[in-house]
Every structure is written in structure tokens, then in C-alpha cells.
């Protein structure tokens, strides 16, 4: 077994410097690497490019890095829940590249899988396709989209083991598996780091080969963005 375990978030983020490009898993606030983000705030690194579907909310998730003005550029598909983000974007402080959600996922997966680029129909005929190569296949038009290049991928899983094998839970899975192995260094944080042999190999979502460092997060707030409930009928 090749041991991927590191003892702390500090150790997990060794090598992080200013002006790097990061991938960060999560959809909304679900499945975000909370501990890695907290450590990035602590390290105070800046000039960052962050590839993440969303930009958090004002006081949680990537919003924490935005507050400290650590992010130079965001690559996202939807950024609607963050006032500070909108302010920085409209004032020109923050560079933003908005891309379709499926394209974001596939550009991560392409990097993971060794494809330099992919053709997608998403965005053809819109400003997203401006300046990009397009091509017709069987009468339909497609846009060439390149694989991402990133220095670190920060992902969050439910359970993992010292070999770096990961299991995700519910919709907290989202972009996390697609980002594993898609950057130079993949750092996985888990709610529960279990001894080797405890995870059933049949149930592994991401094999440890895609993970460079793994640690158990100290605390998980797991904040709910839109708490929606129904009443029990009496």
C-alpha cells in the first residue's frame, strides 16, 4: 500500500504559493473542501485562480477567500449567491470566466483522463464560444474546449483510507471525483479516515491512484444554503 495520509491540513497544503491555479470541489456549499479553504485563508496566499462551480456565499466557502481578496480569477458556472463576488466582478477587481456546468465538469475530467480537449455542443452560437474552434459532426455544431491545467485540486469526500481511496455521499459528490487527479497535486479531505481494509473495494468511487495526499478534516460545518422542508400532515 502506498500511504497517502498526512497528519494535518498544514501538511496537506505544503507547496501552495501565490498565483497558483486551484480546482475546488463542491456544488453550492455541498461537498466543499472546508478545511483546505480555511487553511488557504490562514496562509493568506493571493493572486489565485479558482476553478469551482460556485463561489460560495459571502461568509462561507470560497466567499472567505474573496473577502480577503485572495482570488484574482474565478472559473465557474454559477455565481448568483454571493454579493461580494458580484461587487468585485462588476468593479473589475475580479476576473471571471463563466462556462457551462457540464463543460466545467468535462474539462476537469479531460485533465484527469489525459484528453487535451473535448468537443461539446454546449454554448455553440453564444458568447461562450467566441474565439473558440468549432466543428460540425453529423450535422450538429460543437465547440472545442480545453482540459484545465491546475496546480492543486482540493476535494472533499465522506470516507477515505490511507491508500487514498474515496467514497462520497449524496450530492456532495458533484465535481469532487472529476477533479481527482486532474491537477498536479490532489489533496483529499474526508469526514472519516478509516483503517486500510475497512472500505469495500466494490464501493470505492475514486481509487487512491488519483489522490496524492489525504487527511481527516478537523471540523465540518456542512452549512445548508437553502433549508427547505415540508410540514408533516396531521
Amino acid at each position: 500500500m502506498i500511504n497517502k495520509k498526512v497528519s494535518s491540513v498544514e501538511e496537506a497544503l505544503i507547496g501552495v504559493t501565490n498565483n497558483m491555479t486551484f480546482m475546488l470541489g463542491g456544488f453550492g456549499l455541498s461537498g466543499i473542501p472546508e478545511n483546505a479553504i480555511a487553511q488557504l485563508v490562514k496562509l493568506g496566499v493571493s493572486g489565485l485562480t479558482c476553478i469551482s462551480n460556485n463561489a460560495g456565499v459571502d461568509d462561507f466557502g470560497l466567499g472567505l477567500l474573496l473577502q480577503q481578496k485572495q482570488i484574482k480569477k474565478m472559473v465557474s458556472s454559477y455565481v448568483g449567491e454571493n454579493d461580494e463576488f458580484e461587487r468585485q466582478m462588476l468593479s473589475g477587481e475580479l476576473e471571471v470566466e463563466l462556462i457551462p456546468q457540464g463543460t466545467l465538469a468535462e474539462r476537469c475530467r479531460a485533465a484527469q483522463a489525459g484528453f487535451p480537449a473535448i468537443y461539446t455542443p454546449a454554448g455553440y452560437g453564444t458568447e461562450v464560444a467566441e474565439g473558440k474552434e468549432t466543428r460540425e459532426f453529423d450535422g450538429k455544431m460543437y465547440v472545442l474546449e480545453h482540459a484545465f491545467k491546475a496546480d492543486f485540486a482540493f476535494v472533499k469526500a465522506w470516507k477515505g483510507d490511507e491508500a487514498g481511496n474515496l467514497i462520497f455521499k449524496g450530492t456532495a459528490r458533484n465535481f469532487n471525483p472529476n477533479m481527482c487527479g486532474a491537477a498536479k497535486i490532489t489533496v483529499a479531505e474526508v469526514e472519516e479516515l478509516v483503517p486500510l481494509g475497512e472500505l469495500d473495494p466494490n464501493q470505492i468511487h475514486i481509487p487512491g491512484i488519483f489522490v496524492k495526499r489525504i487527511f481527516q478534516g478537523a471540523v465540518y460545518e456542512k452549512r445548508i444554503e437553502q433549508r427547505t422542508v415540508r410540514q408533516k400532515s396531521t
Binding site: S77, Y78, V79, M89, L98, P100, Q101, Y124
Partner: peptide, 16 residues
């Protein structure tokens, strides 16, 4: 210049 929330999955959905 006014509202920029992003397309989310809408572009993938409508293209396919």
C-alpha cells in the same frame, strides 16, 4: 452590466 449569475447547466441542457 446588471445581473451576471451565470448559466449553470442551462447551456448544456438546451444544446442537447
Amino acid at each position: 452590466g446588471k445581473m451576471v449569475k451565470g448559466m449553470g447547466g442551462a447551456m448544456d441542457l438546451v444544446a442537447s
